[in-house]
């Protein structure tokens, strides 16, 4: 059975840096979440995320991604193996999402399919609101996420206003 973890990462206090977390929070608020789907606001945490990978077949990571395609650019990249993350780090042995994935490999809980969804930030200034570009692009990121979550065989039902 499919078991999907959607992990939003980034810092919500640094404007566009928090787009991944905000996207996941939006899904939590607007959809009924079936048991085979887990949504986590991972913030900027490292190894604390490891327990949530246990038993997952799919991992979607939603993050601010510097793709160089212009602010607000929405991207999707399937990581055939987690090796794409395993490269020179911002510092030796920096503990970020890359290390969580290596730790997952070493503790035998790396999901078989890992997809990175990204939105290119314009600003990383301290602040709680997005740039106009990211604000405008967010609906297309959400649409893409919902579509890809459903492509794994999970049905997302919007919460009805009561």
């Amino acid at each position: 059975m499919q078991n999907l973890l959607v992990l939003g990462i980034g810092n919500i206090l640094l404007s566009d840096e928090g787009a991944g977390v905000r996207a996941v929070q939006y899904l939590m608020e607007h959809y009924r979440i079936p048991p085979q789907l887990t949504l986590i606001d991972g913030g900027t945490m490292g190894l604390e995320i490891l327990p949530y990978l246990e038993g997952k077949s799919h991992l979607f990571i939603v993050d601010a991604v510097a793709s160089g395609q212009g602010a607000g650019h929405v991207s999707q990249k399937t990581l055939l193996d987690a090796g794409i993350f395993f490269r020179n780090k911002i510092s030796p042995h920096q503990l970020g999402i890359s290390e969580v994935l290596s730790a997952a490999t070493l503790t035998d809980c790396l999901p078989a399919t890992i997809v990175l969804f990204g939105i290119e930030p314009k600003t990383l200034q301290a602040g709680l609101s997005f740039s106009a570009e990211v604000e405008k692009a967010l609906p297309s990121l959400l649409k893409l996420l919902v579509q890809e979550i459903e492509a794994t065989g999970i049905t997302l039902e919007p919460k009805t206003a009561s």
């Binding site: 840096e17 510097a66 793709s67 490269r87 911002i90």
Partner: peptide
Amino acid sequence: CAIHLYDPDEKQLV
């Protein structure tokens, strides 16, 4: 400061 931007370029950052 907790910044967490993912940079897909495989460049040496150290």
